[in-house]
Design a protein around this nucleic acid. Structure first.
Length: 650
DNA sequence: GCGATCAGCGG
DNA sequence: ACTTCGCTGATCGCA
């Protein structure tokens, strides 16, 4: 077991680096003034990596050979270790004794802190670096503490905490640019260069300050996390670990099927493109809004049809009604627009989803890995990136056909996938929040709440209008209800429902008159913002909002609360799975839904499994206390996500 | 490289 | 006087 004085001797070399750097001297000075707040047993670290995306082996073409590069490699670790008299900063590069010692240190003593711990922990796991004890995440803490900020990188946080250090990134950035251009000139491929090319002298300064700032943020926020936000923070800590676990599992993707679908789409696209060029009388770039606009003007479209907010636009929401209601009295023009919209829909499918997903899966034996950012949004929702799996289309727009992309996500051999979906969670939570019993009663009796809301807020005439002009009323009403309750005004309502402003105005007025509690809650939020500066939900999370933007408050509370509900559910499902003998796993969360997998088995154990997961999702104290039991829909499939079927478990 | 635009998702 | 919100990602066009 190392003790701190030993470590200082071991890192004698590292300390010398510190003393030669003016930035670090300033850091020391800063530290000396503030170190009384330091948690004695903590240590912050930062890993420097070669920047290859997680889970995606990349191909580098160098000379005549292709090299396949697997995963992220650590080439250096920096540490910031607080002692009673000073803070020790260390930079250790891969291959040195110092590096080995740093790795040992991470494996043995004290509490660890990292900025974006999920990333660093993932990197360490891939590189077989063991980290013992709890790892605190300053990104997570900062998200909770400064919830309305946009950016949480070290640089923006540094501006608040120690502005005197805020230019530490410049040297490494400019050096990186210099090296990049040098290698690019020499013909090396894009992505070949990374921070490991940068000299130790520059890298050390940069990386050590990173660790230092991370520790500073920790010292500043941690005490607050312990008293004000303890519940929220410990929840996030748990979710962080689960996100890490899910990231490493990956999802199964059917590359062959994907390729077949791509070819079908491409065939159609080629035909449509030819038609489009023929109508336009020339070839142009369909993907460029500017060029599309000039063609439309050439075809003499009435300018007012494509004007939004006094600017010309080729927005889909603008063009679609023109086609649907034949607003443009020009056969040729309508055919042009229709073809254009169809092509754009196909492009979206192919270039945004099918091709990128297949490429990823191909490099990984049919697996797709993604980043699950549990705390990266202002409201506490989880975001999935790289690839963004939460945005896979349900239907192909305009054609209203089932989407082939979802059918490319398949179950692992021998497993079934189960989708657990909270039914209408946000709206029913909102009803509980404001105490609207009519909606709660309808929900408890199993009725659809959006149609219910429509009935007591809209006049027959308005409903008829919506039905006639917009087709499927349910989806429209859902959209409208959410928009109105969260504060849409007359223009917003008119835009959503594509109706004249006077009709929107009367609709909106009727709506708010029928739901006085909505207005009441808005005012309550406003008052709270003016007196306290934030609104708080049932789960301990606070949302700081400018009083001038009070209209955002109800949305923040509802969206944030639902995110918290999902996180509580995630933790509870995981607790259940850990104690059960099922070899079941959670694959991915999707806003209001969990996708899980489980080995195929007889019906009895399957139903039991589903019931347990559902009750883990329903057993949320803050809701059961308010007599709300959220419905959970269960669907299952043994082939692909498109083919899932509803499963009755009650 | 970076912001704007336009597509998709969720409620 | 006025305002739904939150997110990702591909592409364009400008600097």
């Amino acid at each position: 077991m190392y003790t701190k004085p030993d470590i200082l001797e071991l890192y004698d070399k590292a300390i010398r680096i510190n003393k030669s750097c003016p930035d670090h001297r300033r850091a020391f000075d800063y530290w000396m003034q503030h170190n009384n707040k330091a948690p004695e047993q903590s240590l912050s670290f930062d890993t420097e990596t070669t920047g290859i995306s997680f889970g995606v082996p990349s191909m580098l073409h160098i000379g005549n050979t292709d090299i396949k590069v697997y995963n992220i490699k650590v080439f250096g670790i920096s540490l910031a270790i607080p002692t009673r008299k000073r803070i020790v900063l260390i930079w250790a590069r891969l291959g040195t004794d110092l590096f080995d010692e740093a790795v040992k240190l991470l494996g043995i003593c004290g509490q660890k802190v990292a900025h974006n711990a999920r990333y660093d922990l993932r990197v360490c796991k891939i590189n077989s670096i063991k980290i013992t004890e709890e790892t605190h995440c300053t990104l997570t803490a900062a998200r909770i503490y400064w919830d309305r900020r946009q950016r949480f990188g070290l640089q923006p946080l540094c501006e608040i905490i120690c502005p005197e250090l805020s230019d530490w990134e410049l040297a490494v950035k400019s050096e990186s640019r210099r090296i990049k251009s040098k290698y690019t000139r020499a013909g090396y491929p894009k992505g070949y260069i990374n921070y490991s090319f940068i000299s130790d002298k520059i890298m050390a300064e940069y990386s050590m300050i990173d660790s230092f700032l991370c520790l500073m943020i920790h010292c500043m926020i941690h005490p607050r996390m312990q008293d004000t936000y303890e519940e929220v923070y410990t929840r996030e800590q748990k979710v962080l670990k689960l996100a890490l676990k899910m990231e490493q599992q990956g999802l199964q993707y059917d590359c062959r099927k994907s390729l077949i679908e791509e070819r079908k789409f491409n065939k159609k696209a080629v035909i449509l493109e030819k038609q489009l060029y023929k109508i336009a009388g020339e070839e142009f770039n369909i993907k460029s809004p500017a060029q599309v606009l000039s063609i439309l003007l050439k075809l003499k479209i009435p300018v007012k049809l494509i004007t939004a907010d006094s600017e010309l636009s080729t927005d889909k929401n603008l063009l679609e009604p023109i086609v649907d209601h034949k607003l443009w009295k020009n056969e040729k023009g309508l055919l042009f627009l229709e073809t254009l919209l169809n092509i754009k829909a196909i492009y979206k499918q192919v270039y945004s989803y099918l091709i990128p997903l297949r490429k990823r899966a191909m490099y990984n034996n049919g697996k797709i890995y993604c980043n699950i950012n549990a705390t990266d949004t202002r409201t506490g929702r989880t975001a999935v990136t790289d690839p963004g799996l939460q945005t896979i289309p349900r239907l192909i727009s305009r054609r209203k056909r089932k989407n082939p992309i979802r059918s490319c996500f398949i179950c692992r051999p021998g497993y079934w996938n189960y989708h657990f979906d909270y039914a209408q969670i946000e709206m029913i939570f909102y009803a509980v929040l404001i105490g609207e019993t009519r909606i709660i009663d309808a929900y408890n009796e199993g009725r659809d709440i959006y149609t219910e809301i429509a009935q007591f807020t809209c006049s027959e005439e308005d409903l008829e209008y919506i039905r006639k002009t917009l087709g499927d009323p349910r989806q429209q009403l859902k959209h409208l209800s959410l928009a109105v309750l969260y504060g849409a005004g007359v223009p917003g309502t008119a835009k959503i429902l594509q109706m004249p402003k006077d009709r929107a105005a009367s609709l909106l007025a009727g709506y708010l008159e029928a739901c006085p509690l909505v207005v009441e809650y808005r005012n309550q939020c406003k008052h709270e913002l003016y007196t306290k500066g934030y609104v708080e939900d049932f789960f301990g999370r606070r949302y700081h909002i400018e009083p001038g933007q009070a209209y955002k408050a109800p949305n923040a509370v509802v969206q944030g609360s639902c995110a918290q509900i999902l996180k509580i559910a995630l933790i509870q499902i995981n607790e259940y799975l850990e104690t059960s003998s099922d070899r079941a796993r959670i694959l991915i969360p999707e806003h209001d839904e969990f996708i899980t997998e489980r080995p195929s088995a007889d019906r009895d154990t399957e139903i039991l499994f589903c019931r347990n997961v559902v009750s883990a999702m329903q057993n949320i104290k803050q809701l059961t206390d308010r007599r709300l039991k959220i419905r959970v829909d269960v669907e299952r499939t043994k082939t692909n996500w498109e083919a899932k079927k509803k499963l009755e478990i009650s």
